[in-house]
Amino acid sequence: MTTHGIASREEWLAARRDLLAAEKALTRQSDALAQRRQALPWVKLDKAYRFDTEAGSATLADLFQGRSQLLVYHFMFGADYAAGCPSCSMVADGFNGFIEHLAQHDVMLWAASRAPLPKLLAFRQRMGWSFPWASSAPSDFNADFNVYFSDAQQQKGAGEYNYQSAAIPLDELPEPVLQIAAGCGTDGPTFIQDRPGMSAFVLEDGVVYHTYSAYARGLDAMWGAYQWLDRAPRGRNETGIWWRRRGEYDSVAQSTVASCCR
C-alpha cells in the first residue's frame, strides 16, 4: 500500500496550479540570475595559456575556433588517473547532443583536464564521445582557475575552491570519495587535487577575457539526468554515490534499460 498522499483529479489539479505559480516564480528568478551573470565585469587574461589538442598545441584564443564565446568544462581527470571522474562523465554525457547548437549560437564548448591528451582521447573513445577535449597540462590553467591543488597546497591547507577555502583533512576523506578515487585508479588525496567546474570566456578585438566560473553545486543544472530525476515521482532518491560511468551499471539495470529501448 502506498504511503504517499492520494487525491482526486480535481484536488491534484488545484495542488498542481499552486506548484505552477512557484515554478514560474523560480523561472523568473533564474532569468534574473542569468542577467546578473552576464552583467559581471570581465577580467582581461594576460597569461598565455597553452593546451594540447588533436590539432596540436593551442592557445586559449585558439579554442574559440572562430566564435566569440567559449565555455570550458573543467573535467576531473588528473595526470595520475586511470579513468575520468564518473560524476564529470555523467555531466559530459550530454555534451555531444548540444555542442552543435551552442556553436550555431556563437559559443564553443570544450572540456579541459590535466591528464595527457592520449589518455583523454582514449577515454573519450571508450565513452563514445566526440566533443573537443584539451589537455591543460602544458600550463597553469587548472591551478589559476582553482580546479587543481598541488601537493604543497594540500599539505598546507591552502588554495580556494568555490570562492572559499579548499582545505580538506586528507586523513578524514569520506568513504564515497575514496570509492570514487579507487574507481579512477588513484588514491583519495590524489583524486581531490583536481576539482570540477566550468569557466566562461569572451574574445573581443583579439583579447580574451574571463567572464564567469562556477564550481561544486553551481554545476547542478549541467547534470542533465538530474533535471529529469527532479521531475520523477521519487526525485533523486539518493543513497550514497549511486551513479556510474555509462556502461558500468550492474547487469540487471543494463538489461532493463536495453529492454525499454527496443
Rank of each mutant, 00 (worst) to 15 (best):
M1K: 11
H4S: 14
H4N: 13
I6L: 15
R16V: 10
R17S: 11
D18G: 09
L20M: 08
E23K: 10
R28Q: 14
D31V: 00
D31A: 12
Q38H: 12
P41A: 08
W42T: 10
W42H: 10
L45T: 11
Y49W: 10
Y49C: 00
R50E: 13
A55F: 03
A58Y: 10
A61M: 00
D62P: 02
L63S: 02
G66T: 02
R67D: 01
Y73C: 08
F75G: 04
G78L: 10
A79P: 07
A83G: 06
D93C: 08
N96D: 15
A103H: 01
Q104L: 09
H105D: 15
D106S: 05
S113E: 04
A115R: 09
P116V: 06
P116I: 09
R126Q: 15
G128F: 08
F131G: 07
P132D: 05
W133V: 06
A137H: 11
S139E: 03
F141K: 05
F149Y: 13
K156T: 03
G159D: 04
N162I: 04
E172P: 01
V177Y: 01
A182L: 07
P189L: 07
T190F: 01
I192Y: 01
D194A: 15
P196Q: 05
G197A: 09
M198G: 00
M198A: 11
F201M: 00
V202G: 00
H210K: 05
A214E: 12
A214Q: 11
Y215E: 03
G218P: 05
L229S: 12
P233S: 07
R234Y: 11
G235N: 01
N237C: 04
W243H: 07
G247A: 05
E248F: 02
A253D: 11
A253Q: 12
A258H: 08
R262C: 02
